[in-house]
């Protein structure tokens, strides 16, 4: 905080940070998919297969109306995939890229930003594919795509805050990473992917709405199905869930940076 850095200095720094993140994205893609035959296509193939299988299983298992529909689970699963992809990869982000930290320009958040950009591209791309597939299979077009995009962006931010926290905690206590792996799957039945709040009895509805992801799934389904269902969501509640972990996580990463550098 010397005060010597002026506004243009900040813009330069931001531009530099974007370049670093861009380079990190390319490196990450290469280390993850570079050696496989299909190459970068695996980025989309993995969630596509998972989401497709889950949607088909639920579709085949029967059920009433929308509960068994292809769109409900395939598109919902992509929102979940974004959260799962970001949070479950958070524990080893710092470890995997530790060597890069010898470059002064690479900061810890950059590593996370790069991974999150990849996850967002994968989830959003496959989700768009599923939307098109749903329409092609005779489903209705999304009612308000803006709300679905907003849900994606908010899910990215929510997952990012959590990922920062997870990353800074696991850099100190490595064992915490295993709990994160379990938790990302354990959260699946209660995160809002499997149900809509409207289906729950009234007293359970309140309990379900404590879960921030439930609000996001409701927001996305509001955009997806429009007025067909009553949806419950509170954007300010999600807002607190986004900025709280961001503050703690970013602060944690600054502490972690000092410790990681010592090794």
């Amino acid at each position: 905080m010397s005060g010597a850095v002026t506004r243009t200095g900040l813009v330069d720094a931001a531009r530099m940070q974007l370049r670093v993140i861009g380079a990190l994205v390319i490196r990450e893609m290469h280390t993850r998919f570079g050696r496989q035959r299909l190459g970068y296509l695996w980025l989309f193939a993995e969630p596509l297969l998972l989401g497709g299988v889950i949607a088909l299983l639920h579709g085949a298992s029967g059920g009433e109306g929308i509960r068994s529909s292809f769109e409900f689970f395939s598109i919902g699963f992509m929102l979940f995939q974004l959260l799962r992809g970001i949070v479950s990869r958070a524990p080893n982000t710092i470890n995997a890229n530790q060597t890069l930290l010898y470059h002064r320009q690479v900061t810890l958040p950059d590593l996370f930003f790069a991974r999150h950009a990849i996850e967002l591209a994968a989830s959003a791309g496959v989700m768009a594919l599923f939307v098109v597939a749903g329409i092609a299979m005779g489903g209705a077009a999304p009612d308000q795509p803006v709300k679905m995009i907003l849900a994606l962006v908010l899910m990215l931010l929510l997952a990012q805050g959590i990922a920062f926290m997870v990353g800074s905690i696991t850099s100190e206590f490595e064992a915490a990473g295993y709990f994160v792996q379990i938790a990302t799957f354990g959260i699946m039945p209660i995160c809002g992917l499997m149900f809509m709040v409207e289906w729950l009895p009234p007293d359970w509805q309140e309990v379900a709405l404590w879960m921030p992801t439930v609000h996001l799934f409701e927001l996305m389904r509001d955009g997806q199905f429009g007025e067909q269902f009553r949806t419950f969501y509170d954007l300010s509640y999600i807002g607190w869930w986004i900025i709280g972990p961001h503050l703690l996580g970013l602060a944690g990463l600054r502490i972690a940076r000092a410790r990681v550098g010592l090794e």
């Binding site: 900040l10 720094a13 530099m16 940070q17």
Partner: peptide, 10 residues
């Protein structure tokens, strides 16, 4: 925190 992180690049 974000701006400080950005500064580190410069």
């Amino acid at each position: 925190l974000l701006v400080a992180g950005m500064r580190e690049h410069a």
